[in-house]
Simulated scan of single mutants.
Amino acid sequence: MKLSSFFSHTPDTAAQGEARRRVLPVRAAVFGICILVLAVFLFRADFSAVQASASGFSFLKGLFVTEAKGYGMYTEAGTSRFEKGSKIHIYLEVDGFQNLKKDDGFTINIGLDLQVKDDKGNVGIEQKDVVNSELFVKSPWRDFFFTVNIDLAELPPGKYTLCFIATDKTSDKKASHEMDMEIF
């Protein structure tokens, strides 16, 4: 069916006019259903959780930094080797978390756990909820970062792997990111 025939107005004979009056409501109903299906596909009816990205929940970045002032505002440390007893700062970005619709805004609930593994992969330290962040915002967030400060006074010299496990508590999805470091 061409749209021009759907919207055209040509003088009809009595028989053609009667046939058009019977067909027009059917065409209008089909057209209306197509628009409704398209609207449901483009604008999903369930807005209870809005994902920050089309990708799944994951880490975008994990860096040793000397300072972090905000999302994307950091100074890289330039090394993963640290002197025993020093304090290190880590900047982490996550993506794909959900914004849960509540009242006149959205909540974001993300937690971060830490495991410290030795050079053989054995977990020596495990700490749950190093960071636990529950926020209420007016508009969906797309950018989320963590800063973690670790005091290396208790760890003996050696090679270690820091394993960060982030949990999007809205969707219960998890992501992990590992960073190798050395204490001398």
Rank of each mutant, 00 (worst) to 15 (best):
M1I: 14
S5D: 15
F6I: 14
F7L: 11
S8P: 11
S8C: 15
S8D: 15
H9D: 04
H9R: 09
P11Q: 09
A15Y: 09
A15C: 04
Q16V: 01
E18F: 13
V23M: 14
V23N: 07
R27I: 07
R27P: 02
R27T: 06
A28Q: 09
A29Y: 06
V30S: 04
G32D: 06
C34M: 15
I35L: 14
L36T: 10
V37W: 10
L38I: 09
V40L: 12
F41P: 00
R44P: 10
A45H: 06
V50C: 00
V50E: 05
A52L: 11
S53K: 07
S53P: 07
A54M: 01
F57P: 04
F59Q: 03
F59I: 02
L60K: 13
K61G: 01
G62Q: 10
F64V: 02
V65A: 04
V65D: 06
V65F: 06
T66D: 10
T66R: 12
A68L: 08
K69R: 15
E76G: 06
E76D: 09
A77V: 07
F82N: 06
K84I: 06
G85A: 05
L92V: 08
L92G: 00
E93V: 12
E93K: 07
D95H: 09
F97Q: 06
Q98Y: 14
K102D: 04
D104H: 10
F106I: 05
I108D: 02
I108H: 03
I108A: 01
I110S: 00
K117S: 00
D118F: 08
D119F: 09
K120S: 11
G121L: 03
G124I: 14
E126I: 07
Q127L: 10
Q127A: 08
D129C: 05
D129W: 08
V130K: 05
S133P: 01
L135R: 10
V137Y: 04
K138L: 09
W141V: 03
R142M: 06
F145C: 12
T147H: 08
N149A: 11
I150G: 11
L152M: 11
E154L: 03
L155G: 08
P157L: 01
K159C: 09
T161N: 09
C163F: 05
C163I: 05
F164L: 01
F164T: 02
I165Q: 06
I165S: 05
T167W: 11
D168P: 05
D168R: 05
T170M: 08
T170P: 00
T170W: 00
S171D: 12
S171C: 06
K174W: 09
A175N: 04
S176V: 04
S176W: 03
S176H: 10
E178A: 00
D180H: 10
D180L: 10
M181V: 07
E182H: 05
F184A: 11
